[in-house]
Amino acid sequence: MAEVVSSVAPLVDESRQLKLLIDHVCDHAIYLLDPQGRICSWNRGGERVNGYTAAEAIGQHVSIFYSAEDQRLGLPQQTLDAARSQGRLVGEGWRVRRNGEQYRASIVIEAVREQGQLVGFVKVTQDITERYQAQRLLQDAQRARQHLQRFEGVGRLTRGLAHEFNNLLTTVGNALDLIALRPGADARTLDLVELAQAAADRGSLLTRQLLAFSADQTLVREPVGVPQMLDQALPSLQRACPPRVQLHLDVPATLPPIATDGVQLHSAVLNLVLNGCEAMPQGGTVTITARLEQRLAPDLAHPTHRRYVAIAVTDEGAGMPPDIAERASEPFFTTKEIGKGSGLGLSQVFGFVSQCDGFVDVQTAPGRGTTVRLLLPAIEEVDHA
């Protein structure tokens, strides 16, 4: 039998070896840029990561992979300038594929010099979106767990104080009722009784808020359809807002139900809406959204993904600096003037959501408004044992 001779040339040519090596790296985009940042050549991984064919990409400036906002800010040129001055730049950021989809990219840019002169750049890009999102989920879960642990001890103390305080208020209220019923009470006495009763009622409200924070209030948990609940609540929520503030509702109708107390959930959303209104004294829009999210449960010893319905209330106010945002859910912490608020609003929301096996996520920054998200487990994830 005659020996079959392969027509494929052996791998002896170094340039061919290098081309095959680079072309067969499919999970990294590797491309060569000229000193101005135009693409001279790239591998197959470049097409897979960025979505452009070689014919579409070669000759284009590297800025085509950046968002319009990053281009406006001059980020592509700043990146090249840093690589030119430092010789090598390592970093990550958001990039844009040909179809407009954003992805998280890990990048390495090496300045290429010959005899001291810059002749171009070698850039390597890897799509790390899945890893980035997993890290963010883990960080969010860890942060939520820290909040739960931080307030566990405070909640126990608050629970005991609230019950004792409630017993005292009950005694005071009963005494005031008896005084008001006495036939010989004059108008001045009745006025003082009314003032004292108003103070006792205010104390009762604070007690309920303390119990809500300490997760010791009684919840009537039942299946609640978030889209239907928010749609029905919208008129009353709008009436609670000043005339200069408009509510916008963006909730898909396909969300799964959650197991919670509908009255308390309405109260929590109203609380957040009113906070949003206070953050915009000149008026604006408060947006209420709800989405289904896959998150790591922060209350479990071993990280486990659960499906949450995330109800978010977003305002267009001044936002909060990090030190204020970190303390926003602490009981009695408030930035308002004395007498303008108890500081229990957000902590009450936090306690209610914690009692429903969920958690609260606050996203804010100075000049960028505030978003408070209530993450409540979808009903198929609730333990009915």
Rank of each mutant, 00 (worst) to 15 (best):
Leu138Gln: 00
Gln139Phe: 08
Gln139Pro: 07
Gln139Ser: 15
Asp140Ser: 05
Ala141Lys: 06
Ala141Phe: 06
Arg143Lys: 10
Arg143Tyr: 01
Gln146Lys: 07
Gln146Thr: 02
Leu148Tyr: 04
Leu148Ile: 04
Phe151Trp: 13
Glu152Leu: 12
Gly153Ile: 14
Gly155Leu: 09
Arg156Pro: 03
Thr158His: 10
Thr158Ile: 14
Arg159Val: 09
Arg159Pro: 01
Leu161Pro: 04
Leu161Val: 14
His163Glu: 14
His163Pro: 04
Phe165His: 06
Phe165Val: 04
Asn167Lys: 07
Leu169Asn: 12
Gly173Met: 07
Gly173Asp: 02
Leu176Ala: 04
Leu176Val: 11
Asp177Arg: 09
Leu178Ala: 09
Leu178Thr: 13
Leu178Cys: 07
Leu181Ala: 11
Gly184Asp: 12
Gly184His: 09
Asp186Leu: 07
Ala187Thr: 06
Thr189His: 01
Leu190Val: 10
Asp191Asn: 08
Asp191Glu: 08
Val193Phe: 00
Glu194Pro: 00
Leu195Asn: 13
Leu195Tyr: 07
Leu195Thr: 06
Ala199Phe: 06
Ala199Val: 12
Ala200Tyr: 02
Ala200Thr: 11
Arg202Cys: 14
Leu205Lys: 14
Arg208Ile: 10
Ala212Ser: 13
Ser214Ala: 15
Asp216Met: 03
Gln217Glu: 15
Gln217Ser: 11
Gln217Arg: 14
Gln217Leu: 15
Val220Cys: 12
Arg221His: 10
Pro223Glu: 01
Pro223Asn: 00
Val226Gln: 01
Pro227His: 06
Pro227Lys: 05
Gln228Thr: 03
Gln228Met: 02
Met229Phe: 05
Leu230Cys: 03
Asp231Trp: 07
Gln232Arg: 15
Pro235Arg: 13
Ser236Cys: 09
Ser236Asp: 15
Ser236His: 14
Ser236Ile: 10
Ala240Ser: 15
Pro242Met: 05
Gln246Arg: 15
